[in-house]
């Protein structure tokens, strides 16, 4: 099978086969990161633009390292860059980016659907590195990769996600990804953080955090954004931690070999106790390592080998 998608915009638009192919490719890429010389010439001469309208050091770095390990030329354009002058629309920016003839545009934007708007207007492949509260497909894919690595499978697992589902693109993409690959996803949060029609995303809503994590194979905690208290979502951090924080007692309700994930950055003592974040169940740092390999796989599939295979086929 060849990878024929031009863009990676969200999990919904990827098939089970495509997701499997991405995960398999990423496993291969991980080996490169373990070599003494962590670089292959696969994407030499290719240009990758990192277009981050929203600040994100972690995700941008991960994409940047991935590009460099494949020998692609990467250049970062941020909000303050001269090409994004005040008053310029996103479509104008897209036209300017297109003029640089990039092969891939990695895009982070505060508006849901912004990468979809760009993808329609540029020849380059667009990889969504997070749009508004809509999707963060590379994060979900690396989460799938990390779980598969630990558990050997995705199908049949119980994934418990706790946190602000309403405002989380990671949650949306993880729910889509894990359910698509055959896992059962259960979510819990204060009901102020549960969007209308959540079941349409394919997950179940638990009555409380205890029933959410009960017998879970994976517990994923989402970052609580302290500034959101102003949006009347919850009364305060202390109460949040008491109802929806991951502590030892709740962790014990899960399966013995449970793994704990967090897309970062952590609010220690709020959504997750510090000793759990650093403890043996945590695969938070594996997530970071796998992030690079997974993003290498995405570049390879949309801009390199995947496409070449397609030509041969």
């Amino acid at each position: 099978m060849a990878f024929t998608k031009k863009d990676i915009l969200d999990i919904d638009s990827l098939s089970v086969e495509e997701i499997s192919m991405i995960l398999n490719t990423a496993e291969g890429m991980k080996e490169i990161s373990q070599r003494p010389v962590k670089k292959v010439p696969t994407l030499r001469g290719k240009t990758i633009v990192l277009f981050f309208q929203e600040p994100s050091t972690r995700t941008r770095l991960s994409f940047d390292v991935a590009a460099k390990r494949l020998s692609a030329d990467s250049l970062a354009i941020s909000k303050s860059s001269s090409s994004m002058v005040k008053g310029e629309t996103l479509v104008d920016t897209a036209k300017n980016l297109e003029a640089m003839s990039p092969d891939v545009i990695v895009m982070r934007h505060s508006s849901s659907g912004a990468p979809h708007l760009i993808a329609k207007r540029v020849k380059a492949s667009v990889i969504n590195a997070g749009d508004g509260i809509h999707a963060h497909p590379s994060q979900a894919l690396l989460d799938l990769m990390s779980v598969k690595e630990k558990k050997g499978r995705i199908e049949g697992l119980k994934i418990a996600i706790t946190g602000d589902i309403s405002h989380s693109r990671v949650a949306r993409s993880d729910i889509a990804g894990f359910t698509k690959m055959g896992a059962e996803v259960v979510v819990s949060a204060p009901l102020t953080m549960i969007p209308k029609g959540i079941k349409a995303l394919g997950c179940k809503l638990a009555d409380d955090m205890e029933s959410c994590v009960e017998n879970a194979d994976v517990i994923m905690m989402l970052r609580i954004q302290k500034e959101r208290q102003g949006a009347m979502l919850f009364p305060g951090e202390r109460e949040y931690a008491s109802l929806f924080g991951l502590n030892r007692k709740r962790l014990n309700l899960a399966k013995k070999d449970v793994v704990v994930m967090h897309p970062g950055p952590l609010n220690r003592g709020v959504e997750i106790d510090s000793d759990i974040a650093d403890g043996k169940y945590s695969i938070i740092l594996n997530q970071v390592t796998n992030g690079v390999a997974l993003r290498m796989a995405l570049f390879y599939l949309v801009a390199g080998g995947g496409k070449r295979n397609a030509d041969k086929a």
Binding site: S112, G113, D131, G132, I133, K196, I198, A200, L201
Partner: peptide, 10 residues
């Protein structure tokens, strides 16, 4: 507000 908005993140 509803299923489509939830899916689209709007």
């Amino acid at each position: 507000e509803g299923i489509t908005a939830t899916k689209l993140g709007i």
